[in-house]
C-alpha cells in the first residue's frame, strides 16, 4: 500500500521534473520571466504611481496582477496539452504506465512553479518598499500568496483550454477569453450591468470573480473561504482537463 502510494508520488514527480525542465530547455521560461518582471515594473512604478502615492505598500504592484496574468499565464498554459497532441507525444505519454491524474497534476504544478518563480523574482520591489518606508510585511506576504493562487486559477483554465485543441494559438485565445470573464465578473461595470437582477445573482457572479477574492487577500485578509475558492477552482478545472483529454485524445 505504502509502496503504491510512493510510486504515485514518484510518477507525479517525474512528470513535474520533465515539464519544468522543458520550460527551461527552450527560451520560453526566460522570456516569460523577463517580460513578467518588466511589465510588473512598468505597471507598478509608472501606471500605478508607486512613488506619487507616498504610501509604503505594494497595492499598485498587486492590483495590476489580474490584468498582467490575463495575458502572461495563457502563454505558458497554451502548450500544456495542445503541443502534446500536435506532436503526437500524447500517445507516447498515455501509453506509459502513468495515471492521467499524475500527468495533469504534474504538468499543472510545473507551470505553476514557473509562474511562482517569476513572482518571487519581483522581490526587488519588496526590498524597495522596505527601504523607503516600513510597510506591513504580513500583508505583502499574504498578497504574494493570493497572487500565486490566482495564477493557479488562470493556469487551471489554461490547462483545460489547451486540452480542447491541438492548436496552441486557439488555446491561448480561449484561455484569455475565459479568464477575462472570471476577472471582469467582479468589476463594477459588470456588476452594475446586472443591476436589474436579484441581489443573490449579483452576489453569485461577484463570488466567482478572481478580483473579489484576490482583493481581500491582497489587503492582508487571509480568509479561508478565499483560499478555498482558489483551491476548489483549480481542482475543478483540472478535473475538467482530465475529462476533456480522455474525450479528445483520439482526434
Amino acid at each position: 500500500m505504502n509502496s503504491a502510494k510512493n510510486s504515485v508520488m514518484r510518477n507525479l514527480g517525474i512528470i513535474f521534473k520533465r515539464e519544468l525542465a522543458g520550460y527551461f530547455a527552450t527560451p520560453l521560461a526566460y522570456v516569460f520571466i523577463v517580460i513578467f518582471l518588466v511589465m510588473s515594473g512598468i505597471f507598478t512604478f509608472d501606471l500605478g504611481g508607486f512613488y506619487v502615492r507616498g504610501q509604503a505598500d505594494l497595492m499598485p504592484f498587486f492590483s495590476f496582477h489580474p490584468w498582467l496574468y490575463l495575458f502572461m499565464i495563457p502563454a505558458i498554459a497554451m502548450g500544456l496539452w495542445a503541443d502534446e497532441r500536435k506532436s503526437g507525444t500524447i500517445e507516447l505519454l498515455m501509453t506509459l504506465p502513468v495515471k492521467l491524474s499524475d500527468v495533469v497534476l504534474g504538468k499543472f504544478l510545473a507551470a505553476w512553479v514557473l509562474s511562482g518563480l517569476a513572482l518571487l523574482l519581483t522581490f526587488p520591489i519588496w526590498i524597495t518598499v522596505n527601504y523607503l518606508g516600513s510597510p506591513d510585511n504580513g500583508v505583502i506576504v499574504a498578497a504574494y500568496l493570493g497572487s500565486w493562487l490566482m495564477a493557479g486559477g488562470f493556469l487551471a483554465i489554461g490547462s483545460c483550454m489547451s486540452a480542447m485543441t491541438r492548436n496552441s494559438v486557439i488555446a491561448f485565445i480561449l484561455t484569455v477569453a475565459i479568464c477575462f470573464v472570471f476577472v471582469a465578473s467582479g468589476s463594477e461595470i459588470v456588476l452594475n450591468a446586472f443591476g436589474w437582477a436579484p441581489q443573490i445573482m449579483v452576489d453569485a457572479i461577484a463570488a466567482l470573480s478572481f478580483l473579489t477574492h484576490f482583493d481581500s487577500i491582497s489587503k492582508g485578509v487571509l480568509d479561508i473561504r478565499d483560499i478555498l475558492f482558489f483551491v476548489v477552482f483549480i481542482g475543478s478545472w483540472l478535473f475538467a482537463s482530465a475529462i476533456v483529454i480522455e474525450i479528445k485524445k483520439a482526434n
Binding site: S87, E91, L92, P97, V98
Partner: peptide, 25 residues
Amino acid sequence: YLPEGAPCYPDMTVLEFLDFIADIR
C-alpha cells in the same frame, strides 16, 4: 510501444529523453 511516426519530445536530448522514460519505467 512505438507509436506511428515515432513521436518524441523534440526539445530534449536523446539521453534526457531516455532518462525520462527509464524513470517512468
